[in-house]
Structures are given as structure tokens and as C-alpha cells.
Amino acid sequence: MQVPAPFDYRRATSVGDAIALLQDYGPDSRVIAGGHSLLPMMRLRLARPEVLIDINHLTELDYIRVDGSFLKIGAMVRHVTLQTSHLAAEYYPIFAEAEAQIADPLVRNRGTVGGSLCQADPAEDLSAVFSALKANVVIAHRSGTRKVPISEFHTGPYTTILEADEILTEVEVPLRSNTGSAYEKVERRVGDWAIAAVGAMVRIEEGLVSEAGIGLTAVRADHFRAKEAEDSLVGRPPSTEAIAEAASLAATHCDPFADQRGPEDYKRHLVEELTKRALSRAMNRSLPEVH
């Protein structure tokens, strides 16, 4: 069995302690949460931090709550918690749908929301979900916190705007009325990363789309987002034509590449097909009277 290279281990006792440890150990230290992305990479020796800072005991970051006009999700919320959260599902069924398709039940027992975002895998699902929901992330540093739209958080594959001594503490999602959301994913097999996946959020007010979010993953969409497709929907009545146009725009404006999950043309096709499905279901959910 492959094993990690040697490193030092520190267990953080608070967010402040974690930041202090990051400052002490510098850029060769890394935060470990669930560890289900980082530890396999360390075993394969594709990652070799010199110090691991374990934040698994920061229960202060393990919450899902409504606070004012936001649904707030702590960074240490495990996938299984978000998957089964009635509160999250009440506002956004996309959470349960997406989470049920992330990795497998055992991984979901350990993996965390914050860890998934910070690992910044280009095929990561929650990045597309939060992109669709136009969430903000809250980042703690030694002198306070800063809030950043999810669309600015990722800077490329496996990279984020986090500074070496910062940690992600929370994701906040605006609460919206008359809104539906849905997640569509195709994978080669249960537990595999997405070939392509699409998250959609649609808000419909007075018969028109007032707000739309479309998140894409695994297809090199800029910031996991189909901005042109979102823009095309706003101000229009929900219709199959509007959906088709948005889906086509989403497919055009992403940049998938061929790998063993599929060739470029197939992935682009999937983006179109899954965008249609996700938008259609999201719209239906925002218009309960349709059913």
C-alpha cells in the first residue's frame, strides 16, 4: 500500500489557533479536514506538505443555520450532514440531490463542504452548486474575516484565492422566494467524478425569470459558471425555448477537454442536455402551481 511521505501533525483547537499554526509553519503546511482528497494525493506522493493542521475538532464550524437572509453552512459540515439537512433542502433541494451523488456514503461521512471547495478539484460538485446559488464564502485571517463571491474563489484547477494563513470558515447562500434548484450529473459509475454536471437555480417572479444561476463542473467553465446562459434567461418567461437557448449557450461557453471520462464533443453535449434537465426541474420547483 502506498504511504505518505513524513510530515508533522498539529491539531488546531480553534479557528484562531489554526490560523496561528498556519502562520507558524508557513506555506509548506496544509489544513486537513475530511482528508478524502488530500490524503490519497499524499499517499500517491502527489502532495507532500511538511505539516498538517487538523481542523476536524473545530466543531464551531459544523453548523447549518438560517441567519437573516442567508443560509449559512459551516466549513466543517460533513457531506452527509448537508445531504440529509432538512433545513438546507427546504430552501434548496439541489443540496440533497448533489450530495447524494458525491463520491460514496463512506466518503460523505468524512468529507467536508469547506474541504471540497478548498481542494478546488476541477470536477468538484459543490463548486457548481454554490456557483448556481451565487453563494459567498467567508474567509478568516489573523485580523478578521473577508467575504468573497464564490465566482471569485477559485483561481484555477486546485487553486483558490486563499492566502497561506487563511482558512475558509463558511459558505453563505442568499435565501430567495419563488426559487427552484436542481442538480444533474452523469458519471461513469457511482462514486466516480462527474463526466459533466450542472446545477441550476431559477427564481421566477411575476411570470418572469428574475434570477438564474447555472453552475457547471468538470468542463472547465470559467469559475464553474455558465454566465452567458444565466444572463439569457433573466427577464424572460420560463419556456422550453428559453431553456434550450440557455443550454446551448452553456455548452458553447465551457471548455471541456477529452479524457477517459469522455471526448470533448460528448461532454459539451452533456452540458447542453443536463442544463436543460436541471433548468427544467428548477423551474418546475419554482412554480409549484404548474403541478
Binding site: V186, R188, I195, R261, G262, P263, Y266, H269
Partner: peptide
Amino acid sequence: LTPAQVWR
């Protein structure tokens, strides 16, 4: 016969 192969 992966999804990609079937679609192709």
C-alpha cells in the same frame, strides 16, 4: 460501453 461510448 461507457456513457460516452454509447452516445458516440
